[in-house]
Amino acid sequence: MSAETMLAFDTECHLFIPGCGFEAPGLHSFVFDPLFKVGGYEFNKPMLLALLSTVVVVWFFWAAFGKAKVVPGKLQMIGEVGYDFVRRGLVYDALGKKEGEKYVPLMVSLFFFVWIMNIWSIIPIAQFPVTSIISFPIGLALIVYILWVYLTFKKHGFVGGWKNITGWDRSLGWVLPLIVVIEFFSNLLVRPFTHAVRLFANMFAGHLLIVMFTIATWYLANGLGFVYAGASFLMTIAMTAFELFIQAIQAYVFVLLACNYVQGALAEHH
């Protein structure tokens, strides 16, 4: 693997070296040369990491629950804590015990898949959050979107489904047309967009922050600049710790919103 496929910045440039300057991270930090091509189809690092996340999630839950025992072992214990966290903390809260049980597997997989994809951001060598490529959050948000639109129409029928989506309520009187338009746009168009962009932009901004301080450390590491490089390096570590927290929060928020959307689809009154 060459530097071009793994890193997206100039490694030659330092402070006090004439003829080159600091190159701030930008969109180019998110573009990777393909690792290899299969018949014109380019396979790059984020795709590899996404595939690895699938493998990690499947492996973990397989190892934890493949041979489940009544008295759990260490791995099963961790698996149960994770599974129960999503089930009780997210799904049961939003959907209730009876209705929610059906959606627990989806939400648990979503949570752990998104979380692992985010965590790649701070794992050495990988160091890239897959979800900062917008197509991955869009794909996941589409799954949730299709699910809740389908559930709305299945539960309420065609007319009732539209009433549910547009927030139809006769008691609103003359405000009703306004509400219908706003709710239509907000629910059907803006909601999936923000659902995907929230996760994407968080990881995008987080990655930019870390890359910013990392490149600055590398760039400053020359002569007197070492003093400043140290400060920048400390910031890199602080940001890494902060990102670890944000990644978990974002996975949590993504699934929390997914639960709420499903709950909205199943609710009697919008």
Partner: peptide
């Protein structure tokens, strides 16, 4: 709330 700030970044 934070979504607005993030859209700003993008």
């Amino acid at each position: 709330c934070e979504a607005l700030a993030l859209i700003g970044i993008v």
